[in-house]
C-alpha cells in the first residue's frame, strides 16, 4: 500500500476515475440512444430495459478496465514522476485517445489512413507526456474540469448500479 501511495495521490485517482466514467459513459449513452429506435422495432419494454441495463453494466466494466490499465501504467513509471504528473498526463492522454478513436469509428478510415492516424496519435501522446508536466495551468484545468464533472458521473454510476441490479434480476 505504501508503494501504491508513493505513486498516486488519492485525490488524483478520484479525478482520473471521474474522467474515465465521463468519457466512456457519454459515448455509450449517445450510441445507446442511437440504437433505441431499431430496438423498439422488435423488443418488448422489458427486453429494451434489459438491453439498456446490460449497456450500462458493460460501460461500468469498461471504465474499471481502463482505470486499472492506467493505474498499472502509473505503477510501472517512477514514483516521483507519477505522483506529480500522473493525473494530468493520463487525463489529457485519455481525452486525445477518445478523440482519435471517435474519429476512427465515425470516419471509418481505410488501413493506410489508420496507419497515418496511428502515427499522429503516437506523436501527440509523446508530446502530451512531455509538455503537460511543464505547464501547471494544464493540470489545474484538468482538475477543475474533473471537479465540475463529478456530479454528472455520480448520476452515471447510479444508473450503472441500477443496470447491475436489473441484470442480476434477469439472471437469477
Amino acid at each position: 500500500m505504501g508503494t501504491f501511495y508513493k505513486h498516486f495521490a488519492k485525490q488524483d485517482l478520484f479525478h482520473l476515475g471521474v474522467v474515465c466514467v465521463f468519457l466512456i459513459h457519454v459515448w455509450a449513452i449517445i450510441n445507446m440512444f442511437h440504437d433505441i429506435p431499431a430496438m423498439l422495432l422488435y423488443m418488448t419494454r422489458n427486453e429494451l430495459i434489459g438491453s439498456l441495463a446490460y449497456n450500462m453494466l458493460f460501460a461500468l466494466f469498461e471504465t474499471i478496465i481502463v482505470f486499472l490499465i492506467l493505474v498499472a501504467l502509473g505503477l510501472i513509471l517512477p514514483g516521483r514522476w507519477t505522483r506529480s504528473n500522473f493525473f494530468p498526463v493520463s487525463c489529457y492522454l485519455l481525452g486525445e485517445l477518445t478523440i482519435m478513436i471517435i474519429l476512427l469509428k465515425i470516419l471509418g478510415f481505410r488501413p493506410y489512413s489508420r496507419a497515418l492516424l496511428g502515427g499522429i496519435c503516437i506523436v501527440v501522446l509523446i508530446l502530451t507526456a512531455l509538455v503537460v508536466p511543464k505547464y501547471s495551468k494544464m493540470s489545474e484545468l484538468a482538475r477543475s474540469v474533473s471537479t465540475r464533472l463529478t456530479p454528472l458521473t455520480a448520476v452515471y454510476i447510479l444508473i450503472d448500479l441500477v443496470g447491475a441490479i436489473i441484470v442480476i434480476a434477469r439472471n437469477v
Partner: peptide
C-alpha cells in the same frame, strides 16, 4: 449470462461488436 442469453448476447454485440457501425464501447472495442 446463460439465463438471459438472448438479450445479453445482443447487448454484448451492440456494445462491443456492431459490424460496420460505431460500437457503443470506446476503448474495449479497440
Amino acid at each position: 449470462f446463460p439465463n438471459d442469453y438472448s438479450i445479453a448476447s445482443q447487448s454484448e454485440r451492440r456494445y462491443l461488436k456492431k459490424p460496420g457501425e460505431t460500437s457503443n464501447s470506446l476503448f474495449l472495442h479497440s
